[in-house]
């Protein structure tokens, strides 16, 4: 069964353990600015929201790549960048409407979440279960529910 990252922002305390774990796994350094997952802080609301690539079906990044450097990992469903094929043209960084594939100034290539090959460090590092690694069907269900609630809210408001 394919699994996916599930993020529940209400459980996030902004500890940045996920960013630490991600950057250490990806680049061997505890450096949140190098993390593929990013925790956004909303001071006034007292809220935090971890955000990363959803490995979306549309895969805008993958379709925009001129040299086929982005492919789907068939085991995890992750869209993965081949560092040897990426020329660093950055077209994917403007094509991704979620802003989750980014240019890496040191390597001259782009980087994104690759689900750590199926064992995501961010989920393991999260102490509050704000980030969990669960059966894809469940996140699908949650998404449908959230979407249904949103449309209902839309109907109620109009």
């Amino acid at each position: 069964m394919q699994r996916s990252l599930h993020i529940d922002p209400l459980k996030c305390t902004g500890c940045l353990q996920c960013e630490m774990a991600c950057s250490y796994h990806a680049e061997g350094a505890f450096n949140p600015s190098r993390s593929r997952i990013k925790v956004f802080t909303f001071h006034e609301a007292g809220r935090f929201a971890p955000y990363t690539c959803t490995q979306c079906d549309e895969a805008w990044c993958m379709h925009a790549c001129p040299v086929e450097a982005i492919t789907t990992d068939l085991e995890t469903g992750a869209k993965v960048v081949s560092e040897s094929k990426c020329v660093g043209c950055k077209v994917c960084t403007i094509a991704c409407p979620f802003g989750t594939i980014n240019y890496h100034h040191v390597s001259g290539k782009v980087v994104k979440c690759d689900l750590c090959g199926g064992d995501p460090e961010c989920a393991k590092a999260c102490p509050t279960d704000a980030i969990t690694w669960i059966d894809a069907d469940w996140t699908g269900l949650d998404r449908m529910r959230a979407s249904a609630e949103k449309s209902l809210a839309g109907v109620a408001a109009s």
């Binding site: 990013k38 805008w60 403007i94 991704c96 409407p97 802003g99 989750t100 594939i101 980014n102 100034h105």
Partner: peptide, 14 residues
């Protein structure tokens, strides 16, 4: 500026 620039496309197109 390069970080998260794609979100501009998302905000415009949505």
């Amino acid at each position: 500026m390069t970080n998260h620039v794609g979100v501009i496309r998302g905000l415009i197109q949505n």
